[in-house]
Design a protein around this nucleic acid. Sequence first.
DNA 1: TCTTGTCAACGAAGGTCTTCGTAATTCCCA
DNA 2: TGGGAATTACGAAGACCTTCGTTGACAAGA
Lengths: 157, 157
Amino acid sequence: MRRPLRVNGGRLDGLTATDDTMPNTHANSAVPRPTEAELDILRVLWDRGACTVREVHEQLHADGGAGYTTVLKLMQIMHAKNLVSRDDAQRAHVYRAAVTRQRTQKRFLAEMVTRLFNGSPSQLVLHALGEAPRASKAELRQIRELLDRIDRRGKPQ
Amino acid sequence: MRRPLRVNGGRLDGLTATDDTMPNTHANSAVPRPTEAELDILRVLWDRGACTVREVHEQLHADGGAGYTTVLKLMQIMHAKNLVSRDDAQRAHVYRAAVTRQRTQKRFLAEMVTRLFNGSPSQLVLHALGEAPRASKAELRQIRELLDRIDRRGKPQ
DNA sequence: TCTTGTCAACGAAGGTCTTCGTAATTCCCA
DNA sequence: TGGGAATTACGAAGACCTTCGTTGACAAGA
C-alpha cells in the first residue's frame, strides 16, 4: 500500500499549503508551520523577547491552564523544529523566537489566500475589511496610503 | 490527573479560537472548524454544488492522490460533524456543503486576527495588501469603495 | 440466476499534537 | 557535604486526523 510519508504531521488542519514557492527573502522554508499551542508560545516570545520556560508558563498559564512540563515539552519540540532558538549557557535555558511575527503572519495569510480565497489576496482584503469596520482613522489612512503606493508602483492589468 | 477533554480534536493547529462570541448572524456555532482535508472537499462542494463522493474524489484526486474510500470516510465524518448535509434517496448519496464559503472565510479570518494580529483586523488588511500588489484595478477600486463606505458610515474615534 | 461493478459502512493503522508523570541533573545553602 | 528546590530530559497516554483494506448490500446485465 502506498502510504506517502506526511511532512508536517499529517493532520495539518484547516490551512496549509507549505509550498514555499513564493519569492521570499531569506527563505525560512525549513521550519514547519507552528501549531496552535506553539503559536501561543511564540506570541509570548514575540511580545517579551527571550524567555525561560518558567516565564512563558507563568505568562500563559498563570491561572493553571497547562502544567510547567507541558510548556517545557512544547518548547523543546519547537526547538527541534527550529521554531525557537535556545541559549543553554545558564541552567535555566533561555528561548527566543526563531521565526519572526511578520514572517509567520505572511505565511498564514498566504495559506489562507490559497485555500479559502481562490488565491486572490484582494478578496481576502475585502472580506477582512468588511468584518472590521472598527478601524481607527489612522489605520484607514494607512490603508489608503498603501493603496496609493500600489497604484503608483505596479500597474497590473 | 486533570486531562481536559478537547473539543475540536485537541490539535487544532495554528489558528483557532472557537469563541463564537462574535455578534454573528445565524449562529453557525455548533459545527467545528473544518480540517485541511475537509476544507479541500468543501471547496469542491462550494464550486460545484451538490456532489456524490465519486464526483468529489475525481475532482480532487483524479491523478491518484487519495483513494475513493478516503474521501468517503472524510465526507462521512463531515456529515457527522454537520459540515455537510446528505441526501441518501439514491444509492449514491448526494452531499452538499452545510456551511457557506463566506461564513468559513469569516471564521478563519477572525481566528487569524485573534491569534496573529493582536485582534486588529486592519493590521491584517495592511499585511495582506502588502503581500498582494498583484490586484487588478477593479479590485483596488472595490477596496477603495469599501473604505469610503466605512468612512461615511461608522466614524470610530 | 449468476456475475460484475459500485457504493456505504466499519475498523484499523500510522502520524501528530497536547498533556503529564517520573527520573535525572544541577545548583544553592545550611 | 548532604539535602532541597528548580529544571531539563524521557517516555507515554489520550485524542484526532488521514488513509485504506475489507466487507456487505445492491443493482444491472448476461
